[in-house]
């Protein structure tokens, strides 16, 4: 348990770890997450499970090295162990045959979208997937998504790959073409989810968004991950992480995500600085 079986770098800042975790692999369902700590000083990081094999007893996580703790995680190598790994947590995505399903992923949010695309396809849905990133180098899992989706659309902000623009631009085009969808899941950076779900909900599509608020324990204990959904306080860890996008108070969530921006930058600078001296 907890050994890194395989490490891949998917883009400049994005890594995929395959971790030995038979217990979690056996039970996890699409949409669930784990808590991981790289070492004894690291924060507990909530990461949605990107893939798993029940038979071989592993799970995969995909993460971007943004802060000090994700940087520390990215420094671990194949054969090494993460200090702590717990899960699967959160409620699984509600999967059924909705008919035509639309899955929209942005940036590193494409990773947690992958098992949902797979599960929706297995349930018999006709799955259209839109993925996007800032540029070609940051786009992940294109081939995997291609294999699991009936149709795949790709956008990059700078136009270095696929269509130039945002995932929401592609959605607008599909809508303009008169395409209809019965169900939609959106995962990505919070501003992207806000912008995209406003459109999908506006088009009358039942839409769920997988939220990524600040979280400590992941079991309901701290309440740090609270979000307002249809006017009620919900905890993303036990009530989510997916919520009906029509009721999410995005502005409050976006503000809360910025709680520690200053600390994070300082911690990262300091960490990089220390790494420099060690070398």
């Amino acid at each position: 348990m907890t050994q890194i079986l395989k490490k891949e770098q998917l883009s400049e800042q994005v890594y995929r770890f395959r971790i030995d975790a038979p217990h979690i692999a056996k039970r996890r369902k699409a949409g669930q997450f784990i808590m991981v700590r790289a070492n004894n000083h690291s924060e507990r990081l909530p990461l949605t499970i990107a893939n798993a094999s029940k038979d071989d007893g592993w799970i995969e996580i995909i993460f971007q090295t943004i802060g000090a703790s994700t940087t520390e995680l990215g420094l671990l190598n194949e054969g090494e162990h993460v200090s702590d790994l717990a899960g699967p947590l959160g409620k699984p995505t509600h999967i059924e045959n909705f008919g035509r399903a639309l899955c929209i992923g942005g940036g590193v949010g494409i990773a947690p979208l992958y098992p949902i695309v797979t599960a929706l396809k297995e349930a018999g849905n006709d799955v259209s997937t839109i993925i996007g990133a800032r540029n070609k180098g940051l786009l992940i899992l294109e081939q995997e998504m291609q294999a699991q989706s009936h149709k795949l659309f790709v956008a990059t902000d700078d136009g270095s790959y696929g269509q130039k623009g945002f995932v929401s631009d592609i959605f607008k085009q599909l809508l303009a073409e008169g395409q209809k969808f019965d169900f939609c899941v959106v995962i990505g950076p919070a501003p992207m989810m806000k912008a995209t779900t406003v459109l999908t909900v506006g088009a009358g599509i039942k839409t769920f968004a997988s939220l990524n608020p600040i979280m400590i324990d992941g079991t309901g204990m701290c309440g740090g991950c609270r979000v307002t959904v249809f006017g009620e306080t919900k905890f993303a860890c036990v009530d989510g992480p997916e919520f009906d996008a029509a009721g999410i108070d995005w502005d409050s969530m976006l503000k809360r995500l910025g709680s520690y921006r200053e600390f994070e930058q300082k911690a990262k600078d300091k960490h990089i600085c220390q790494l420099g001296t060690e070398q």
Partner: peptide
């Protein structure tokens, strides 16, 4: 839900379990 509103559990967990009061902790 304003920034700086904590449950006591979160505040104490950050300080105690996650050792936010110590220099080497990554938990803000």
């Amino acid at each position: 839900n304003s920034i700086g509103v904590y449950s006591a559990n979160e505040y104490l967990t950050r300080s105690n379990l996650m050792r936010a009061y110590k220099e080497d902790s990554r938990t803000p």
